[in-house]
Design a protein around this nucleic acid. Sequence first.
DNA 1: GCAAAAGTGTTTCGAATACACCCATGA
DNA 2: TCATGGGTGTATTCGAAACACTTTTGC
Lengths: 232, 232
Amino acid sequence: MIEYSSHPHYLIAVDCIVFGFDGEHLKILLVKRNLEPEINKWSLMGGFVGKTETPDDAANRVLKKTTGLEGVYLEQLQIYGQPERDPIERTLSVGYFALIDINKYQDQLNDDHHAEWFLITDRPKLIFDHDEMVKDARIKLRYKAALHPILFEMLPKKFTIPQLQILFEEVNDTKIDTRNFSRKISSTGLLIKLEEKEKLGSKKGAYYFKLDKKKYKEGFQAFVNLIPRLKL
Amino acid sequence: MIEYSSHPHYLIAVDCIVFGFDGEHLKILLVKRNLEPEINKWSLMGGFVGKTETPDDAANRVLKKTTGLEGVYLEQLQIYGQPERDPIERTLSVGYFALIDINKYQDQLNDDHHAEWFLITDRPKLIFDHDEMVKDARIKLRYKAALHPILFEMLPKKFTIPQLQILFEEVNDTKIDTRNFSRKISSTGLLIKLEEKEKLGSKKGAYYFKLDKKKYKEGFQAFVNLIPRLKL
DNA sequence: GCAAAAGTGTTTCGAATACACCCATGA
DNA sequence: TCATGGGTGTATTCGAAACACTTTTGC
């Protein structure tokens, strides 16, 4: 029988950076690690890739198990493979980032899984190389969001233009001109204006919009250039 | 002692898609696989990730060993992890793509390593999921090259604007207006015009240019929008 | 009536495009 | 002298950016 005899074998893990938006700030979801080493330290949600799974499968499974989320936006970041990144045993980890609507899942999260949201700008130190992963994920999110309308994945079904703008500003760490922003967003044709108004954020109230799902799918691959000027 | 007892371990490989440009066409470098299974079939250059290596290290090593190339542009593509992608034993592979100047290395390649260049548009069927990797690499190359000046990595030290334009056209599978292209390229400030002319391609001859290395490094992260209109 | 946020319109500027002719040279 | 590819200039269009006022309504 043929075999790749002498080559070493390693554990393969996945780690998920979950981004969310609460209407004001960009946040990430963290859990307290439940195994040694580094037990009870803050960590990304991770798990090992099973025998019959692809890394994508594993990431989806881990996400479902730790957070109850299913069918969310999930994208591969890169592989992390420093030989000593896990002190116990060599483990290569495939980083993923996910985008979710915080509000939709908040209840289950707090109750069932001991996961907690942190401001992206004010989060605890994480185990292993997870801080590096978060940093990379943030850069990639920014990069991607500058060209593709993925940020809608973090908003509820109904949302207002001001909310959307704050999200863009958070992700890109910048201020955007209200008038130019709303014109640009309108020109994408991705939004459908609703009758209803949101009245919590202001006296006047802001109209709700929803995504035009069909156009969203069609236009997803198109470059849209949504950010005034991408600063790196 | 702590251990991650029961989780499965796998082989980790790297596979390199090497792009080159011969002045007329975009090409990729392939080798005949020298081990079972699929021995003597065309394949990407690959190898296993050693105990003390990162995947990046392994990719560089493989590239050096099979082609003699060192210090070339190398970027991680993604991980390929279908459980059955290698029929012998589960192996996850990290795909990389490299950009090199064909002419610089052509001699060593043919003599030492049995590697061969193929037109990207006319290449043999590859083993395992390598065709998928090539397809993905091409898309990523196009995407990246639309925003970053990476294509210079495939040109010799001295090159002409017409050569550069052909390269852009090949990568993007499109035709570009000569006048607009040269203006756009000039406006980047990345090129330095030389006295010397290239006389092989035409009677009149075309001026050689070289890269302004300093500006290239500075401007690498900046978006430059080098392609007239990116068609997806 | 006033504070606070929402919503909208115009002008300016620069980049992208479309387009056509002259130049230099070897054959 | 002519065929071949190299090199350049201009007008137009479109999108990006800068900029300020009016509207609504809860308090």
